[in-house]
C-alpha cells in the first residue's frame, strides 16, 4: 500500500487512451493508444506530418486533447490547472528540435536557468550542479560561450544539460538528430541511452531516423494515419511484413504512404488549364 503523500508506482509513466485530436477540421489522431514504460527509452516514429510533435505537446499539456485520456505520472493532463501543469512539468525535461536555448544568456546561465527560477540554492551549489551537467554532455569547457557561438550539435547538448539540470523523471526529445553531423549524432545517441540508464529516468524520443533510434530504443511506436500502425521492439518492426511498416522502416519512396500528395488528374490539370 502506498504511503500517504506518495503516488503509486505505476509501471507506465505515460498512458494514452482513445486520444482524439483535430486541427482546423483535420483529424490528427482518431483513437490513439500508447504506453511508455518507466525507465525505458521509447521511440515515437512516423512519416512527417503524422503528428509526432503534436503528440509530445499533448503529453506535456501544451495542447489539450479533444477526447480520450493522456495520463502522465498518474495525473490526467486535461484535468490539471495551470499550477498543476507547471508542477508536472517540473518533473519533466524537454529537448526541443532546435535546442531553444535562451539567446540572451550564455551556456552556463542557460543551464542554470531552471535552478534560478525554481530553487533558492546558494550560488556555489548552482555552480557545481551546472558544471556537473555540462560535464555530462562534454561541454564543461564551453560554459561561458554565448549561444550564437555554438554549433548545432553543441546547442543540442547544452539544451540536454538544461533539460536534466532539475533531475527530471521523464525526458522528452523532439527530433534530436535533425541536422547533426555523424559525430554529433553519435554523441547525442550515446547520451540518450547513458543518461536514461545512469539517472534512472524515462525517455521519449520522437524521431524519423529509423536506424539511429532503433539502436537505443527499448520500444518503438510507429504512427500513421492518426493511429499506432505498429509497436514493439525496434528489431521486430524492422522485420515486419506490414506494407506500411516496411515502407517506413526501409525508407521506400512509394507504398501505402503515397509519393504524391492528393491531386486532380495530372493530364486533365495540364490540358484543362484550370486552377492550380
Amino acid at each position: 500500500m502506498p504511503q500517504a503523500g506518495s503516488e503509486p508506482k505505476d509501471s507506465c509513466v505515460v498512458r494514452v487512451r482513445g486520444l482524439r485530436y483535430a486541427v482546423g477540421g483535420r483529424e490528427i489522431f482518431s483513437a490513439l493508444d500508447l504506453d511508455v514504460e518507466r525507465g525505458s527509452v521509447t521511440a515515437i516514429m512516423g512519416p512527417s506530418g503524422t503528428g509526432k510533435t503534436t503528440l509530445l505537446r499533448l503529453i506535456t499539456g501544451q495542447l489539450i486533447a479533444d477526447a480520450g485520456e493522456v495520463t502522465v505520472a498518474g495525473q490526467e493532463v486535461r484535468l490539471l490547472g495551470r499550477v498543476g501543469l507547471y508542477a508536472l512539468r517540473r518533473r519533466m525535461g524537454m529537448l526541443f528540435q532546435n535546442g531553444a536555448l535562451l539567446s540572451d544568456l550564455d551556456v552556463y546561465e542557460n543551464v542554470a536557468f531552471p535552478l534560478r527560477e525554481h530553487t533558492r540554492l546558494p550560488e556555489p551549489l548552482i555552480r557545481n550542479i551546472v558544471l556537473t551537467k555540462l560535464h555530462a554532455v562534454g561541454l564543461r569547457g564551453a560554459a561561458r560561450l554565448m549561444t550564437y557561438e555554438l554549433s548545432g550539435g553543441m546547442a543540442r547538448r547544452v539544451a540536454l544539460a538544461r533539460a536534466i539540470v532539475m533531475d527530471p523523471e521523464i525526458l522528452i526529445y523532439d527530433e534530436p538528430f535533425v541536422g547533426l553531423d555523424p559525430i554529433s549524432l553519435g554523441v547525442v545517441l550515446r547520451l540518450i541511452r547513458e543518461l536514461n540508464d545512469a539517472l534512472g529516468i524515462t525517455s521519449i524520443v520522437v524521431s524519423h531516423d529509423v536506424r539511429e533510434i532503433s539502436a537505443v530504443a527499448d520500444r518503438a511506436y510507429l504512427l500513421s494515419g492518426g493511429r499506432v500502425a505498429a509497436s514493439g521492439r525496434p528489431a521486430s518492426l524492422l522485420e515486419s511484413e506490414s506494407g506500411e511498416v516496411r515502407q517506413f522502416m526501409k525508407g521506400l519512396p512509394d507504398g501505402p504512404v503515397p509519393f504524391h500528395y492528393p491531386a486532380p488528374d495530372y493530364a486533365e490539370q495540364l490540358l484543362g488549364g484550370g486552377p492550380t
Binding site: Q62, R89, A100, L101, F113, E117, A159
Partner: peptide
C-alpha cells in the same frame, strides 16, 4: 517574436516558467 519563433517561450513553458512573468 524571435523568441516565439525559436521556441524559447515554449521552452520556458516546458520548464514551468511563465514567459509573461519572466
Amino acid at each position: 517574436g524571435l523568441m516565439r519563433a525559436t521556441d524559447q517561450l515554449s521552452a520556458m513553458e516546458m520548464m514551468a516558467v511563465d514567459p509573461v512573468r519572466r
